[in-house]
Amino acid sequence: MIPAGFDYHRPDSVQAALSILTEHGDEARVVAGGHSLIPMMKLRMAEVPHLIDLQAIAELKGICIDGDTVTIGAMTTQHELITDDALADFAPIMREAALQIADPQVRYMGTVGGNVANGDPGNDMPGLMQALDAVFTLVGPNGTREVAARDFFEAAYMTAREDDEILTAIRFQCPIGGQAYEKQKRKIGDYATAAAAVILTKEGGACTGASIAMTNLSDTPVQCLASAEALVGSACNGEALDKAVTEMLAVIDPGEDNRGPVEFKKHVAGVILRRAIARAWDRG
């Protein structure tokens, strides 16, 4: 399994990468860690005559916490997310989620930017970014623009990013309250059968705010507004918890595949959401 031939480019700035992208149009694609794109190229399901490797662009790397905002360069790897103690204090859900992605070798290469920009419904960061209400920075020939994670994912592998744009950074505010990322997978390295990102704030024993997003249960991540609303004012148990699960089940749309039939996936989604809510509540 060897990819079809391509010309390889390794620019050292975003501007240089953009000009190669503009020059070659549809024939060019950027590669970050390559652990989604290279397997597709090996299977000849992706043909990329001009491959633009972003590894030498220093401005795309690093985690910068400024007050209550963090900006993470697109080329920051999952391994770097896991080992950054300041980020783990700021948003512990990032480390918790990143540890559940793929395996150690893949996490050294896989990047947060690639994970979100690829638009693969199986990827974990898109749902997490929606739960965190993150914003993505896109740079193109006409300048820079920002798109909310909640508006970014349009369909499987289809996002708001234009072909001539590069996703350069993600940014989000410090999440307040208890957080949990819960994932069910068949084996190490597999995508989720179901996963849930939950952030809950609590005051005097009652939930005052909730943010919930589910992964790999539709062709995009699924933000669950009605589920979150059902929890507000409750102690995240009893009828409110049941309603949150029911509302989640009403908005997911899993397909049957080798992870199981639709009914099984819905069952797992309910179990995972309950676990994530319980854990986030305990941590709140």
């Binding site: 397997p39 391994h79 070798q105």
Partner: peptide, 15 residues
């Protein structure tokens, strides 16, 4: 300094 799966790294990336 990182463990990688060399079946998923292109020769050019490793330059």
């Amino acid at each position: 300094g990182k463990s990688v799966k060399s079946c998923t790294v292109l020769a050019a990336q490793a330059d």
